Simulated assay, not measured.
Amino acid sequence: MALNLIDIPRVKTITKEDFIAHYYKPQKPVVIERYIEDWPAYSKWNLDYMKAVAGDKIVPLYDDRPVDYKDGFNEPHFKMKMADYVDLLKTEPTKYRIFLWNILKEVPQLQNDFTYPDFGLKLLKGLPMLFFGGRDSHTFMHYDIDLANIFHFHFEGKKQIILFDQKQNDFLYKVPHSLITREDIDFSNPDFEKWPALKLAQGYSTTLKHGEVLYMPEGYWHYMKYLTPGFSMSLRAIARRPKNLSKAIYNIFVMRHFDNMMRRIKGQNWIDYKNEQAIIRTHKKVTI
Rank of each mutant, 00 (worst) to 15 (best):
H152D: 13
H152Y: 15
F153C: 07
F153P: 02
H154W: 09
H154F: 11
F155K: 09
K158A: 09
K158Q: 13
K158W: 03
K159Y: 03
Q160M: 09
Q160I: 00
I161K: 05
I161Q: 03
I162S: 04
D165A: 04
Q166A: 12
K167M: 10
N169K: 14
D170E: 15
D170Y: 07
D170W: 06
F171M: 10
F171C: 10
L172D: 07
L172N: 05
K174E: 15
K174C: 14
V175F: 06
V175T: 10
P176N: 08
H177F: 15
S178T: 11
S178W: 07
L179N: 13
L179S: 11
I180L: 11
I180N: 14
E183K: 14
E183H: 13
E183G: 09
D184Y: 11
D184Q: 10
D184F: 10
D184E: 14
D186N: 15
F187L: 03
F187S: 02
F187Y: 13
S188K: 08
P190D: 08
D191Y: 11
D191L: 11
F192W: 09
F192I: 10
K194Q: 14
W195K: 02
W195E: 05
W195T: 06
P196F: 12
P196V: 12
P196Y: 12
L198S: 04
A201N: 06
Q202M: 05
Q202H: 14
G203W: 06
G203R: 02
S205A: 07
L208V: 06
L208C: 03
G211H: 07
G211A: 06
M216R: 01
M216D: 00
P217Q: 05
P217R: 02
E218R: 02
Y220V: 04
Y220Q: 04
W221P: 02
H222L: 03
Y223N: 01
Y223Q: 01
K225H: 01
K225W: 04
T228K: 03
T228Y: 01
G230F: 01
G230L: 03
G230T: 02
G230H: 03
S234L: 09
S234R: 01
L235W: 08
L235V: 14
R236L: 10
R240W: 00
K243Q: 15
K243T: 14
N244P: 01
L245C: 00
L245K: 12
S246M: 15
S246T: 10
K247Y: 13
K247H: 13
A248Q: 06
A248S: 14
I249Q: 11
Y250D: 08
Y250N: 09
N251F: 08
I252N: 11
I252Q: 14
F253I: 02
V254G: 04
V254M: 09
R256W: 06
H257D: 11
F258G: 00
D259A: 10
D259K: 03
D259H: 08
N260K: 13
M261E: 05
M261V: 10
M261P: 02
R264P: 00
R264Q: 13
I265W: 11
I265E: 07
I265P: 03
I265L: 14
K266C: 12
Q268R: 05
Q268V: 05
N269V: 00
N269T: 10
W270G: 05
I271V: 15
I271G: 04
D272G: 03
Y273T: 10
Y273G: 01
K274R: 15
N275R: 13
E276C: 00
E276N: 11
A278E: 04
A278V: 03
A278T: 06
I279L: 07
I280S: 01
R281I: 03
H283A: 00
K284H: 13
K284A: 15
K285M: 12
